[in-house]
Amino acid sequence: MRDRFELFTMAVTRAYKYVQQIKKHESATFGIKGIHVMCMVALGKSEEGLTVTELSARCCEDKAAISRTVDNLAEKGYVAYEETEAKRRWRTKVTLTDKGREIAKGVDELIEDIVTKIRGDLTTEQEAAFYRVFSAINDRLAEYCEMLEAR
C-alpha cells in the first residue's frame, strides 16, 4: 500500500512540476505568466465574466494571488473590471478585453497543441478513462480533506 502512495504522490508531484515548467516557458510567448494563463483560459470560457472569487475557485489559487493577477492583466489591457471602485473589485465581474480575447485565443491554440502532443498515441477511450479515474481520486481526496477540517 505504501508503494502505491509513494508512486501516486511522486507521479502527481512530477506532473505538477512539468505543467508549471510548460506554463512558465510557453506563457512567455504571450508576455504573461503561468498564473495569467489559468485566468485567461477561465475568462475565455465565460462570456459574462467572473469575479475574483470565482476565478480563484476555477484556477485553484488563493484570492489574493488571483486579485494581483487580475490587476496585472488589467494593467496590460487584457481584462477589465465592471466596477471601477477599487474597494468593490473583488466582488465585481472581470471580463476579457478585445486584446485579452486575442491572447486567450492564442493560449487556447497552444494548449490544444500541447495536449495533443502529450496525449501521444493514447486512444480516446484511454484518455477518457484516465480523466474519469483521476477525477474520482481527486473527489475522494477532497472528501478526505473536508473530513479532516471537520474534526
Rank of each mutant, 00 (worst) to 15 (best):
T69G: 06
V19T: 14
L43E: 03
F30G: 01
A150Y: 10
V19Y: 08
Y78W: 08
Q126T: 07
I111E: 01
E146H: 05
E149H: 13
V107D: 00
C60I: 06
K23N: 08
R151Y: 15
E143C: 03
V37S: 03
E75G: 05
I66M: 06
E109P: 01
M10S: 13
I66P: 01
A11R: 11
A65W: 04
A57G: 10
E82P: 04
V12R: 06
E127R: 08
R89L: 09
K93T: 04
G49I: 06
T29N: 12
M40W: 02
E109L: 09
Y144K: 12
C39N: 10
K93W: 01
R58V: 00
T53R: 14
A104Y: 00
F5M: 14
A129T: 15
D113P: 03
Y16S: 13
R4V: 10
E102D: 13
E125V: 13
E61K: 13
E83S: 02
A142F: 15
A80C: 04
D62P: 05
T9A: 13
T97D: 05
I137W: 07
E149W: 11
E83T: 06
G100Q: 04
M38G: 09
A42T: 01
L7R: 13
A57C: 11
A74L: 02
T51S: 15
E6N: 12
T116V: 09
M1Y: 10
M38A: 12
W90P: 08
L96I: 05
R101N: 06
D113V: 07
A15N: 01
E125S: 10
K45G: 07
E143R: 08
R119T: 12
D62G: 07
Q126I: 04
K24G: 08
A129G: 00
C39S: 12
I66L: 13
L55C: 06
A74F: 05
A128K: 15
Y144A: 12
C145N: 13
R119M: 06
M38C: 04
I22N: 01
E83G: 01
